[in-house]
């Protein structure tokens, strides 16, 4: 079996095992797995309303996945997508309601603000890594909570003690009456186009520019990159900043598309951490991220139908996603298994 085939088989096998274990968990807990999975299916594809909302759910997952994947490709683990996304969310909402501008300026400005906020927050981690050798995993975890508390405090301040900001103006909104009508009044918005453009953008940087080549080189082997005359520290900072930009835009999708404001959050949104799963499943490639985000976004949204239609807690889907991460991360053992299997076949 070629390496390429194995690389594609590992995530697929992981998904299948994840779904099987999920079914076993449901059966052991006294629920009907068939009923559960059919409720999940209807929750995702049941009608045009569900499909619209599923795509809406996929949108921030795409951007969170891109953020994690981009950092991974350059040898960095951005576990701070969550914090960058929260700040992007806040920045987009603030620009959305604080300014009065024509749509053609206002919407791009709000998106830009979100991207800048996320990029800045990730820049801090990149700077700390380049300058002080602070491991980016720990730095971004710490920055996640810092972002959460700061955002909550700012929202409280902006709204004079309330728990959410004003609604964004129509001129900054990603909402689309056309898409709504098409999908039976779902909350589908134009954000999906922004997200898909970003997928192309990531592919373009990494595959078609010198800068992208350098970023990947630093990710592969920073000593070799250094020896070849590349500025490793500059590339680390740049990589984190671009990664944070994707994350910030993920927040803008929620602010300008789905919710239309920013509200105080008791905890994390979970999108950032699920972004790790998305990137991992997609092997950190832009196309892979589209696949990963579609799967996890669909599962997450479809799960909401499970308590009503099948009486099963929606957390079963989070269990399945966590298991899939375990299996993909343990890809080594699946590879060994596959290689043994293919050797046996050759021996026969």
């Amino acid at each position: 079996m070629s390496n390429r085939v194995i690389n594609i088989l590992v995530p697929i096998i992981s998904i299948i095992i994840g779904l099987i274990v999920g079914a076993i968990v449901m059966a052991v807990s006294g629920y009907d797995p068939v009923l559960g999975y059919s409720a999940l299916w209807t929750g995702i594809f049941g009608d045009s309303y569900s499909i619209g909302n599923t795509i809406r759910q996929i949108t921030p997952y795409l951007l969170a996945g891109l953020a994690v994947a981009f950092a991974f490709r350059t040898g960095l683990f951005n576990i701070g997508v969550e914090g960058q996304l929260i700040l992007g969310w806040l920045a987009a909402a603030w620009v959305g309601y604080a300014f009065d501008l024509p749509k053609i300026i206002h919407l791009p400005l709000a998106l830009l603000a979100a991207a800048a906020a996320g990029a800045f927050w990730a820049f801090i981690a990149g700077f700390l890594k380049a300058k002080f050798k602070v491991h980016e995993v720990i730095a971004t975890i710490m920055l996640n909570y810092t972002a959460l508390y700061i955002a909550n405090a700012v929202i409280k301040k902006l709204s004079d003690g309330s728990f959410k900001t004003e609604r964004i103006h129509e001129s900054a909104s990603l909402r689309s009456p056309f898409l709504r009508e098409l999908t039976d009044n779902s909350s589908l918005h134009y954000g999906i186009i922004v997200a898909l453009l970003m997928v192309v953008f990531m592919w373009f940087i990494l595959e078609k520019t010198t800068r992208g080549y350098e970023l990947k080189a630093v990710g592969f082997n920073k000593h070799a990159a250094d020896y070849a005359g590349m500025n490793v520290n500059k590339n680390i900072i740049l990589a984190m900043t671009i990664s944070g930009m994707f994350a910030g835009l993920g927040g803008a999708m929620e602010a300008l598309g789905t919710f239309g404001n920013a509200s105080i959050k008791p905890g994390f949104t979970g999108i950032g951490f699920d972004g790790i799963a998305v990137a991992l499943l997609g092997a950190n490639t832009p196309l892979g991220v589209v696949f990963g985000a579609s799967l996890f976004g669909s599962l997450k949204y479809g799960a909401l139908n499970m308590p009503n239609a099948a009486g099963i807690p929606e957390e079963i889907v989070s269990i399945i996603i966590a298991l899939i991460i375990f299996f993909v991360a343990s890809g080594y053992i699946i590879r060994v298994g596959l290689q043994k299997l293919s050797k046996k076949k050759e021996g026969q």
Binding site: F77, V137, F273, E315, I321
Partner: peptide, 17 residues
């Protein structure tokens, strides 16, 4: 790190489930 993240997701999901 990935495995740890999965533990966090799994711990919360299993407990609430």
């Amino acid at each position: 790190t990935v495995s740890g993240v999965a533990i966090n997701l799994l711990g919360l999901a299993v407990s609430v489930f």
